[in-house]
C-alpha cells in the first residue's frame, strides 16, 4: 500500500488587525507621555505641642533663631540670626543665604560637631508674606551645602516659631 505524502500548507495568520491595535496603543502612550521633573523632599516632623511629653533628654538642643524678614512683594529683605550669644543680620544682598550657611558651618565647627549638627536646632521666625521659595532656600541653607559635588549636612532639626513643634 502506498501512502500519499501531502505537503502541509503553511498557516498564515492575518496580522493586520493586531498591528492596527498595537499602533493605536503606541500612539496613545506617546501622546500621553509626559516628562516630569524629579521632585525631592524635606522631611519634617511637627507633632503638636500639647501631645504627650516625650522630652526626657537631659539637655535640650542648642537653639538658633533665624528670622526671615520680607521686603515688598514678599521678596526676602534680610536674615537675622540670634543664638543667645550674638545677633547677626545678613542682607539685603544676594549672598545672604551663603552668609547664613557660612554662619551655621562656623557655629557647628565651634561646637566640635561640624558634621552632624544633631545637638543644634533652628527655629524659623518667618514673615507671613514672605514667598515660600525664599523660605525653602533658607531651609536649604541651614540643612547643608554642596561643595565639590558632595553634600555636607549641617542642621536637620528645625521648627517654626509659634507652632511649638518640630520641623
Amino acid at each position: 500500500m502506498k501512502l500519499e505524502t501531502e505537503e502541509p500548507e503553511p498557516i498564515q495568520l492575518n496580522m493586520t488587525a493586531m498591528i492596527d491595535i498595537v499602533f493605536q496603543l503606541l500612539i496613545f502612550f506617546i501622546m500621553t507621555f509626559k516628562v516630569v521633573a524629579q521632585e525631592g523632599d524635606f522631611n519634617i516632623k511637627m507633632p503638636m505641642a500639647s501631645g504627650p511629653a516625650t522630652e526626657i533628654d537631659a539637655e535640650p538642643p542648642e537653639l538658633i533663631r533665624v528670622l526671615l524678614r520680607s521686603g515688598p512683594e514678599g521678596i526676602i529683605n534680610s536674615i537675622q540670626v540670634d543664638d543667645d550669644i550674638e545677633t547677626l543680620t545678613f542682607g539685603p544682598d544676594p549672598e545672604l543665604y551663603q552668609d547664613l550657611t557660612d554662619y551655621i558651618e562656623r557655629k557647628l565647627a565651634g561646637e566640635g560637631d561640624p558634621e552632624s549638627g544633631h545637638d543644634t536646632e533652628v527655629e524659623f521666625d518667618i514673615d507671613y508674606g514672605l514667598r515660600y521659595g525664599y523660605t525653602v532656600r533658607a531651609i536649604e541653607a541651614v540643612s547643608g551645602k554642596v561643595s565639590g559635588g558632595k553634600v555636607k549636612k549641617l542642621i536637620q532639626k528645625m521648627k517654626f516659631k509659634n507652632k511649638t513643634s518640630e520641623l
Binding site: 525631592g40 519634617i44 501631645g51 513643634s165
Partner: peptide, 11 residues
Amino acid sequence: EMENFVLRVKE
C-alpha cells in the same frame, strides 16, 4: 493630630 510633614520641592 497629623505630624508627619513633607515639603516637596523640585530637585
